[in-house]
Every structure is written in C-alpha cells, then in structure tokens.
Design a protein around this nucleic acid. Structure first.
Length: 641
DNA sequence: CACATTATGAACGCCCAT
DNA sequence: ATGGGCGTTCATAATGTG
C-alpha cells in the first residue's frame, strides 16, 4: 500500500547511510568470527561423468548394478521407454517385490531403494517389520549393520567393507554418522544406563526382536555418553526419528558417491516421512492437483497489494520453530515444485515476482512456514521501475521501447558483438523518425532476452555489476574486489536473492525475536539472507553459513565484518559437512536455530540452461535434498528440547 | 591457468483463434 | 478441446586472450 511506502513505519534502518557508516568503521571489527573450512574443493569429488546422454546399455548396466536381472531390465525399458527412469524403476520394483506388492508397498520400496538400500533388503525389511516407515528403517539399519559385521567396531567405518557391487549401501561410509564421534571428547562405552532396558522393552513391544532393538540402539549410540549428552531422555519415537533422519542423510551421501549418474528418487506420491503418517495415508491415491503459478505472481501479498491472503493454515508437521525459508526458480520443469512442496512438509509455495519490489522481474517460489500477517517492506524503497533505477538511460530511451521493468537478472550478459549488430541495424534507419517494425521487433527481442539498457544514441549495453547489485538490493560494491573476477560477480549476483522481496517475507521475524536469532543459512551465496535480515534490523546472534564458493564466502565474511555485526559468523564450504553430529553440536552450542534459510542450486531447473536442464534430480539441483535433510535434522533435534 | 568472450534452444505457461 | 503463436528464463561449453 502506498501509505506504507511513503510514510514508512518506525524502521530506523537507513540502508544507504548505514552502509557508509559501516564502511567508515571498517577495521574495527568487534565481532568474533571463525572459519570451519576443511573441504573447499569437495565439488570436484562428484565430477566424473553424468552429462553424456544415457545410452540404453548404460541404463541397463545401471539397473543391473542395482540388483535387477538384465532380462527384466531390458523388458522394463522397452515397456516404459528409455526416458522415464522413474517408471522403469517402478516397474522393476513391482516385478521384484515377491509378495504381490500393493502399490503402496511398492512405493515404499521405491523410496527406500532410493535411499540407497538394495531391493532385496528393503523388501525383506518391509515384510518383517510393520509397514511403518520408522520400523522399516530400523530394520534396514539393523540389517546393514549385521551384514557389515561391524558392531562395536565403528572405527572401521572408514574402510570399504563391502565387495559386492550390488549393494552400494554397504559402503563403510554409509552409517558413519552414527559412529563418527571423534569430535566428542571423552567418548567411551559406559555401562548400560537404566534407561536402556526400558527402551529395549519398548522397541520390542513395537514388534522388533530384542536382539534387533538392542543392535539398533547400540548402533544409534543410546548407551554412549555421546548420545546421553545429546538427548538425556531419548524416547523411542525420538530414537526411530533419529535413525530416520540420519539414515536419509547418509543414504543420500552414499547414493551420490556411489551412483552419481542415477537420478535421485522422488518420494512416491502421497508419501511423507513424518512419523505421524501411517500407511493409510499412502494408500490413498493423490488427488492433489499439480501446483499452478499464480497470475499475477504476488504470492500471499506484496507491498502494493498486501492483503491477498490474510491467513493460512500450515500442516502440523510444518510448524516452527524452527522457521524455514526455501527458495528456487518459479519456472521449473513440471512436477519440481510438487516434489519440493511434498518434501517440505506439504507447505504451499509462495510464488512472487520481484518486479513488485524492484525494477527487475524475478519469478521465484518460496516455501516457508513464516507468519504472513503484518509484513512490512524495507525502507528506503528501491527504485520501482527502470527510469528510477537508471535515470541516466532515460535520455536515450526511445518511445517504442515500452519496458518499465527489466527481465530476470541472470548470470551471463550479452556479447559486445550483439550490441554492435543492434547499433548497426539502428543506424541503417537513422534518417527516419522511427525504425521500421521489423527492426523494432529485432531490437526489442534482444533487449528483453539480454536485459539491455540504453546508454547512448542507438547504443544498448548490458547492466554493469554494480547496477545489478543495486537492483537486487545489495549495497554497492558488495561483490566488488577481494579477488573476484567480473565474470564471477555476474554469476554470484545472478544466483542470488532479491533482497527486498525476501526481506518482506522475513520482516515478521523482527517483532518475534527482539533479542535476535540464530540462522542456518544454506547455499548462502553472497549472503542475500544475511543482508535482508540486517537491513530489517533483525539481530543475528549466530549465523552458520554454507556455500561451496570461496569467493562467495569471502564476500559474506567481508560484509559481516564491515557491517560491524555483533554476532558470530561460522562458515562451511559444503552442505555435506553438516552431518548429524555437527548440527547437534551447533544446536547445543546455540540453543537451536530460529531460521533455516536457503535457495538450493537452480542450474538444472532454470530455463536458460540449454545443456542440463535435468530437473530436481540434476547434478546440482538435487542438493535440494540436502536442504531438506539438514532442515529435517534440525527440526527433529529441536523437537526434543 | 585465470579470465573474458561468444554462440548455443528448449521447456514451459499463457493467450487466442479454431 | 486444441493447436499454434508468443514471451520468458538464478546457464553451459567451447574458444580466445593474456
């Protein structure tokens, strides 16, 4: 609304002045900081192949490697086509599940196989245990453990125990999350605490054999000091929950490492791993309609139209704390947002175009569990259209270029050759009052495609990096200097949040947490979330920031120091470093996270990608599952406290 | 090797006329 | 219903340059 825009409320954060002050005081860092950076180049570990087209024989090998017979695989591929690996897998699973698998069962199998377990093992576990997810998981954990034969010998976890290619899940690294307790000094096997008996009984009463339960608890570390220090009063449900979360984490890791060209499995429709769900839920076929993008794309409301939706009810499993905020491109391939939403506790995505916040479009989906009442926008308001953002270009802007907003700011810019071709074309018809229609069309098409702006007579040019910074809501020179190349500036900026948009959604945190928040920021990039919170005046007590790019981490750290943050910034290079142990450590140290925020890579979702728009299972975009993994770990651990 | 430059469509959703 | 036109898109890979 306009009154908000002009009047502004009691927000005392003046971004520009603030910035100058901050830079002026650079060199007097009063904040503590620390760097945990032991795996800077982990990205290279998943380099190998995966880009090449999936030849039929390669695909057969792939499924044969999963334990299916070649004959069955060939048949399944023939029946379902080579493209749809999900369908093929489904067919294979149905075929292999000995007991006339009900559809819900086969979907369960699908899910667990996707986590890295072998088909045989999953089928067995489902048969032996109840059909509840956690029970199956415990069964699987026990089974894996038995086969590994490593009870009480977790130090061997590093070793590649398994020599059977058909069972990649037996890789020694698979379960080392349970045993990797090096970081906890005083780790020792103590006598069984009095609790243990009780838990054994409970697990047994759930249908597990005493032996199974005992092994599972041992594996989970119920007896250990480590575990006691984590959860002094671990309940059975919590135990199975932990197994589930940690299993998923490790399974994902193992999956990535072992079979990186295998698409990550989607959960079957209607499946959720929440402990409260039961099989009944799975048996209902999904009647959910595919998620549709709103038009206009204003989500639950934007400042100029704030009350589109005043209230929403979140699924119980989604409720915070912790609050979470996930972002990605709105125009993703079909089904991607359905999957994302399904994983993120069935929260409906909020699709917003940043053209309602700044002078450039940016169509994004946000899945979050934040309240949506009483949001407020940042002040000062950023330029709302091209003229305000680039006043100097106005002089050269022809009347037939009717753009008021730029298109999405991307990671690449137009070539000089192109702008030269355009200039030539325009000069051809310089005598006339206006270029002919076909020239206008050509010029405008290229302008929209490359976000060109007028910088002189017949002269068009791509945006400068500092202009992109401004449009996205970052302080000027945010990405400048410190050894970053111009190309990388465009790339980092193009992958970032639009700060004003995100800040609008996060603004509700200010009143909720007057003392500040602890933030887990995944895929932080150049720190869009941190900048948004800072500009909102939300104090950041502890920020754990994860980004694979060193230059990005440097940008965030540099900004953190220059803005005189009082809190602590901890950064990691890779989300893989955040296993259950690390997260537990940090939660204990900080008293939990209040916000888990991040936008996972869009490389394989974005329309601009000509080469590998592979969807959510693509090489980079599948890191979404790490966002979910980590969020779910945090949620489960915090529910215990 | 780091960095800069350049060329390289397809997959959607939407709209509107059949 | 349906099919064609239209507009948009957090990019990758090959090559050049220094």
């Amino acid at each position: 609304m306009d009154e908000n825009a002009s009047g502004g409320d009691s927000d005392d954060i003046d971004w520009n002045t603030d910035d100058e002050l901050e830079i002026a005081s650079y060199g007097l860092p009063s904040c503590s900081s620390m760097t945990v950076n032991d795996g800077e180049t982990i990205a290279g570990s998943t380099e190998a192949s995966s880009s090449a087209g999936s030849s039929s024989s390669k695909m057969i090998d792939h499924f044969v490697g999963m334990g299916f017979s070649e004959e069955v695989v060939a048949k399944a591929i023939q029946e379902n086509g080579e493209q749809n690996t999900d369908l093929i897998l489904e067919a294979l699973l149905k075929h292999s599940a000995s007991s006339s698998a009900s559809s819900s069962k086969s979907k369960l199998i699908d899910h667990f196989v996707g986590m890295g377990f072998s088909v045989d093992m999953v089928a067995k576990a489902i048969q032996e245990n109840d059909c509840t997810v956690n029970a199956v998981l415990v069964g699987l954990a026990i089974h894996v453990h038995d086969k590994a034969g490593a009870l009480g010998q977790s130090s061997q976890a590093e070793q590649h125990i398994n020599s059977d290619q058909n069972s990649p899940e037996l890789d020694g690294s698979f379960l080392d999350g349970f045993s990797d307790t090096d970081s906890f000094e005083g780790e020792e096997i103590t006598n069984p605490d009095p609790d243990k008996e009780e838990k054994l009984v409970s697990l047994a009463s759930m249908g597990y054999s005493v032996q199974e339960a005992s092994i599972a608890m041992e594996r989970c570390g119920v007896h250990s000091k480590y575990c006691d220090s984590l959860w002094p009063n671990t309940s059975i449900a919590e135990l199975t929950d932990f197994i589930c979360a940690a299993q998923m984490a490790k399974a994902a890791d193992a999956l990535l490492a072992e079979i990186e060209d295998k698409p990550r499995p989607k959960p079957s429709n209607g499946y959720h791993k929440h402990k409260k769900r039961r099989m009944l839920d799975y048996e209902k076929p999904p009647i959910d309609e595919p998620i549709r993008l709103p038009n206009p794309m204003i989500g639950f409301g934007v400042p100029s139209n704030p009350d589109v939706i005043v209230h929403r009810s979140l699924p119980e499993a989604a409720a915070g704390p912790p609050y979470f905020y996930y972002e990605n491109v709105a125009l993703a391939p079909k089904g991607v947002w359905d999957t994302i939403s399904r994983f993120l506790y069935d929260v409906e995505p909020e699709f917003v175009d940043s053209k309602y916040f700044c002078a450039a479009a940016r169509k994004r989906g946000y899945v979050h569990n934040l309240p949506i009442e009483n949001r407020h926008h940042l002040v000062p308001l950023p330029p709302q259209n091209i003229y305000e953002a680039l006043p100097l270009s106005r002089k050269w802007w022809p009347s037939w270029d009717t753009r008021s907003h730029l298109n999405c700011l991307q990671t690449c810019i137009a070539s000089a050759k192109l702008t030269e071709r355009i200039r030539k074309a325009l000069e051809e018809c310089d005598g006339e009052p206006e270029p002919p229609h076909h020239v206008q069309k050509f010029v405008m098409d290229e302008c929209r495609k490359w976000n060109l702006v007028w910088v002189g007579r017949n002269k068009l040019a791509p945006l400068e990096p500092d202009e992109v910074e401004m449009l996205l809501g970052f302080p000027k020179n945010h990405t400048r200097g410190g050894g970053i190349s111009r190309t990388d500036r465009y790339k980092s900026l193009g992958n970032s949040f639009q700060v004003d948009t995100v800040a609008y959604h996060l603004s509700v945190l200010k009143e909720m947490y007057p003392d500040g928040i602890n933030v887990l920021s995944l895929f932080s990039g150049i720190g869009g979330a941190e900048v948004a919170l800072h500009r909102l005046g939300v104090r950041m007590k502890n920020v754990v920031s994860v980004d694979i790019s060193e230059v990005n981490r440097n940008i965030v750290r540099s900004w953190w120091e220059q803005t005189n943050q009082k809190g602590t910034l901890i950064d990691f290079a890779d989300v893989q470093q955040l296993d259950a142990n690390r997260i537990e450590q940090m939660i204990n140290a900080f008293g939990g996270f209040d916000l888990v925020i991040g936008g996972s890579p869009c490389n394989n979702l974005a329309g601009s990608n000509r080469h590998s728009r592979d969807g959510l299972e693509g090489k980079e975009s599948s890191l979404f599952y790490d966002y979910f993994r980590i969020l779910d770990l945090v949620k489960n651990m915090m529910q215990r406290n």
